[in-house]
Each structure stands twice: as structure tokens, then as C-alpha cells.
């Protein structure tokens, strides 16, 4: 297929080799194992930069006290209020309310536990506003596992 001169910034699949269809000399499509096509790395990288940008903005807002730490966890786990609402089985407006520090501070243990379970953090982390990494980054960043 179209050969490229670009060098991928990083192989997005890590060590995992994926297969894709490549035409051989006779034009027959064959499954070939290898890393992903390099333009994919570029656009995947772009998507993650966008996510990181949102996470950074959210961290600033949390630090400024404009939103609760729930906003950070929601953003870091690529969720919006409706997705978080369906994961926690609550109406969306309630989740929106909990994004305000005023209401979040008054949350009961039950609600905190519910949020903690979704993000794999302890209720105490939420209560004290400790910002832990999103679910897909937790394994390496912490020695001991969270509940």
C-alpha cells in the first residue's frame, strides 16, 4: 500500500502486533502482522492531546475551586455527565449538581462509594480531593491496588 516517509511518534499498540490487509505483488490481499499504519499514530496522538488538554483544564478548575474533583475524574475517564449518570444510575441533573464543590462536599458515603467504584478510587480520595490517574493508568502508577 502507499508507502510513507513519516516516522511514527510512538507505536500506539505498544508491543502488541496487529494484522492488516496488504496486497502482495500479484494484487492479492494478505493478512500481514505488524505495527499499525503510521498515519494512525498521528491521528491517535492528536485525539489523546485533545483529551490531555481537557484534563489539564479540568485540573486547573478544580484547583481554583470552581468545580469539584468529580469533574476531574469524569474528564480523565473520558466521560461526560450523561455517561457518568448512566454508570452510577442517577439522573443527569444530579451528577451536574455534584460537579459543584458546594454540593459535592455534602455528599454522603453511599454516593461517594458509587463514584469511587466507577473510577476505581477510594471514597477517601474523593472526599479529600486527591486526583488519581484515570482507570487505564492506575496499574503502573500505584504499587498496591485500589478497591
Amino acid at each position: 500500500m502507499g508507502q510513507l516517509n513519516e516516522i511514527p511518534e510512538s507505536d500506539i499498540t505498544g508491543a502488541v502486533k496487529v494484522v492488516s490487509y496488504v496486497a502482495n505483488k500479484n494484487g492479492n490481499q494478505e493478512l500481514v502482522q505488524g505495527s499499525m499504519w503510521s498515519p494512525v499514530d498521528v491521528v491517535n496522538h492528536q485525539a489523546w492531546l485533545e483529551i490531555d488538554k481537557h484534563i489539564g483544564a479540568s485540573k486547573k478548575k478544580v484547583a481554583a475551586g470552581r468545580v469539584s474533583c468529580l469533574h476531574y475524574y469524569m474528564t480523565a475517564n473520558q466521560m461526560d455527565t450523561s455517561l457518568l449518570a448512566s454508570y452510577t444510575r442517577q439522573p443527569r441533573w444530579l451528577v451536574c449538581l455534584h460537579l459543584f464543590p458546594f454540593f459535592f462536599r455534602r455528599l454522603g458515603a453511599k454516593s461517594l462509594k458509587k463514584y469511587g467504584e466507577v473510577f476505581k478510587v477510594s471514597p477517601d480520595d474523593l472526599r479529600h480531593g486527591i486526583l488519581k490517574p484515570p482507570v487505564y493508568n492506575q496499574r503502573e502508577c500505584e504499587g498496591d491496588s485500589v478497591d
Binding site: 500500500m1 499498540t13 490487509y21 496486497a23 490481499q29 499499525m36 499504519w37 498515519p39 491521528v43
Partner: peptide, 17 residues
């Protein structure tokens, strides 16, 4: 481009598959 080429497509937006 991600929808077209990312994992699961086999390349070229499933056209090669």
C-alpha cells in the same frame, strides 16, 4: 481518519478486507 484506519478496520476503511 481514525474511523477509517484505526484498529479493527484492516486498513483502508475495511475496503482491503
Amino acid at each position: 481518519v481514525r474511523m477509517q484506519e484505526e484498529i479493527g478496520t484492516g486498513g483502508g476503511g475495511f475496503r482491503f478486507m
